[in-house]
Write a protein that binds this DNA or RNA. Structure first.
Length: 649
RNA sequence: GCCAGAGUAGCUCAGGGGUAGAGCGCUUCCUUGGUAAGGAAGAGGUCACGAGUUCAAUUCUCGUCUCCGGCUCCA
């Protein structure tokens, strides 16, 4: 007998060689039906794999990430089997799970190509294979055996993978006629898969390297119940409705023009209003935190970027240098604001008493992003950073860093971004050539970030090799409507630029010292932030932020003048209002303006004109009764005040 | 930049070798209304751009541009 410890710390005895499934059966039939995989001493195993010694065991179902992963991983194999059925000789790369589903990278026999309409037949075949209820069987093999098997299959991709594995750690999984190299774990058999949707086909470089062959990546998702697939598809449709590119057009916030150029957004009046509102908000927050606004030009002498190191790193992939009529004179569109801010720092001698110096600028920068990478407002070639650079003494670094985290918290709170990830990006220790600066400075900078996050109690994940080339950073990532992650706020510690620009301050000891620099952009960029904000709110911006706060709807054209009077009163009190004076019935005006997501609708007709009032209707809520324009203005101002209370006042 | 798909009216889309259609929007007229779509008439298109095939191309072929889904990249 072996002792099995369950998550509630209860210990039960089972015969040696019992499996996770055996354990589940003793708990309940329901659990035995639902369980998908099992963790044995922290390692996720197949449900049917015998447990030979005492162990801590946890059973995973669809509700656990581990359970879903097992399910989707087996689904990837099922898809591979179906693809092999239609295209014998296909070579298989890797087939991992992703956030929603799985993919498999495949290399079809020459002459074959997968197109969208092939997916349907593969889906059908997958369901057919699933219904046949093939057991999924694990076997442990030697490296030589594995190499032999895949040499016979002619699958060079798998051979390359096996070549890198250690002998004795190699396992295969077989189901029906299909065998794949795989660490597992997997479902007991294929019949668990009840619903299949192959979502799209894309190209992907073998092993993520653009020098390698392009494989065909097939994405899919599967479910244990047909109903779950239906719900998932509805969810995707709903998400598409929130897409900022769609809503941006619909709400007339921004547009693009081929004549202007790729990735160069044009902000329409309402979008510009929204942006101005966001900038104003951030300016106030930053003022409270002791920042000074500066303004710098959109271009700079090439030498400036040679000093900063950006020219060497990105020069050939940037918008190219701007020549002037003068011989040898060269400028660049600025790809970032830091070099300009360093020059402002240098414009006069600084004392230790002056530090920290906090310089903020809504700085527009231009980066020649790869054409295939451009995406709505989230990835563009000309954008405005809510940038600031803090120059501080080494002893002030951590405190300053923590204050920047506070600012980001304020912003996320104001806009109700509760679901974000914080990521610490460090250098890749194996690739020192990718970075500038001394190991010692990197060490100091990385430690400062890690400690500041700990002291703020911020839950973070750490990624090696994701740092900027001049320093480590802390990024805040938010997901868009379709679950794609975008980096918003970023904070970076930099010991390198101060050195390159020879920045100094005079210390209490009357000697010259080098300040430390913090780069930070809580929004990331105005463009990306607005994009994520649109998807987050589905276009229903909070009252304080939304471009049109109020629309006045005259009942008939006879009351247009009164409506304009009301609107003027509101605009005079700093409330953004418009009048819908179209020759339409009131029902129509209400409908159209509700759909435009304007928070307050004021209906004015004979009654209101006579009593000098407005009938208030709140978007999505309906009639709120009558009051004077002044009373309504006070109500709006109070609501705005409530929304912003404690954020910067 | 790479792989795959797409581009028809301001928007959403249908059509298809004989130079185009719907709904919404827009303009004008009728209507002057009370809390989610009143009625009528009208304007608006080099069918992304450039070549080729053809008696004839918006339709077929090739190229270019842009957009979409991924990959790579992201100071």
């Amino acid at each position: 007998m072996i002792k099995i410890t369950l998550p509630d710390n209860s210990v039960r005895e089972f015969p040696k060689g019992s499996s996770g499934l055996d354990i589940a059966k003793t708990i309940s039939n329901r659990l035995a039906n639902d369980v998908l995989s099992v963790s044995v001493n922290g390692e996720v195993w197949d449900l049917t794999r015998p447990i030979e010694a005492d162990a801590a065991v946890k059973l995973y179902t669809w509700d656990d990430r581990e359970g879903k992963e097992t399910f989707w991983h087996s689904s990837a194999h099922l898809m591979a089997e179906a693809i092999e059925f239609f295209y014998p000789g296909t070579r298989f790369g890797i087939g991992p799970t992703v956030d929603t589903g799985f993919y498999y990278d495949v290399d079809l026999p020459s002459g074959y190509q997968l197109v969208e309409k092939d997916l349907e037949k593969i889906e059908k075949k997958m369901l057919e294979l699933a219904r046949e209820k093939h057991d999924i069987v694990r076997s442990q093999v030697s490296k030589a055996e594995a190499l032999k098997l895949f040499t016979e299959k002619g699958d060079e991709l798998k051979l390359e993978l096996i070549g890198e594995l250690e002998d004795g750690t190699i396992s295969l999984y077989n189901q029906g006629g299909f065998t794949d190299l795989c660490r597992g774990p997997h479902l007991p058999n294929t019949s668990y898969v009840k619903a299949v949707k192959l979502t799209n086909i894309a190209g992907a470089y073998w092993r993520g390297n653009e020098k390698n062959k392009m494989l065909t990546r097939v994405y899919g998702v599967t479910f244990p119940k047909q109903k779950m697939l239906e719900e998932y598809l509805v969810m995707i449709e709903e998400a598409k409705k929130r897409d900022h590119r769609k809503l941006g057009k619909e709400m007339e916030l921004f547009t693009f023009s081929e004549a202007v150029g790729q990735g160069l957004p044009l902000w329409l009046p309402k979008g510009a209003q929204l942006r101005a509102q966001l900038e104003d908000f951030l300016r106030r927050v930053q003022k409270k935190y002791g920042y000074d606004q500066v303004i710098t030009p959109h271009i700079g002498d090439v030498q400036l970027y040679k000093t900063s190191g950006h020219y060497e790193k990105y020069g050939k992939d940037s918008f190219q240098v701007i020549k002037t009529p003068a011989e040898g004179e060269e400028y660049m569109l600025k790809p970032m604001n830091c070099p300009h801010h360093c020059e402002i720092y240098k414009s006069k001698p600084r004392s230790y008493k002056d530090l920290p110096v906090r310089m903020a600028e809504f700085g527009t920068v231009y980066r020649y992003e790869q054409s295939g990478e451009l995406h709505g407002l989230t990835r563009v070639r000309g954008f405005t950073q809510d940038d600031a650079h803090l120059f501080c003494r080494p002893d002030q670094l951590k405190e300053e860093f923590k204050k920047v985290i506070d600012i980001i918290f304020i912003i996320f709170k104001a806009l109700e971004f509760n679901d974000y990830n914080a990521q610490i990006s460090l250098r890749d220790p194996d690739k020192p050539e990718k970075y500038i600066g001394t190991a010692e400075n990197w060490e100091k900078a990385e430690r400062a970030i890690i400690e500041a996050c700990q002291e703020k109690g911020l839950k973070t994940v750490t990624e090696l090799g994701e740092a900027a080339f001049y320093g480590p950073k802390l990024d805040f990532m938010i997901k868009d409507a379709l679950g794609r992650s975008w980096q918003l706020g970023t904070i970076q510690v930099d010991y390198n630029l101060p050195e390159r620009f020879q920045l100094e301050y005079i210390g209490a000891d009357d000697k010259r010292h080098r300040p430390v620099m913090i780069h930070r952009a809580p929004f990331g960029s105005m463009e990306r932030f607005v994009a994520v904000l649109i998807e987050h709110t589905a276009g229903k911006f909070p009252l304080w932020l939304t471009p049109d706060q109020v629309v006045v709807l005259p009942i008939s054209e006879k009351y247009n003048d009164y409506a304009r009077t009301v609107s003027n009163i509101l605009n005079f009190s700093d409330i953004r209002s418009v009048v819908d004076d179209r020759n339409e019935k009131i029902g129509r005006k209400i409908r159209d303006n509700e759909l435009k997501r304007i928070p307050y609708l004021l209906i004015v007709g004979e009654k209101e004109a006579e009593s000098a009032t407005v009938s208030v209707r709140r978007q999505g809520e309906g009639d709120k009764g009558a009051m004077t324009a002044q009373e309504f203005a006070a109500l709006v101002k109070e609501e705005v005040k409530m929304q912003l209370t404690g954020l910067y006042n």
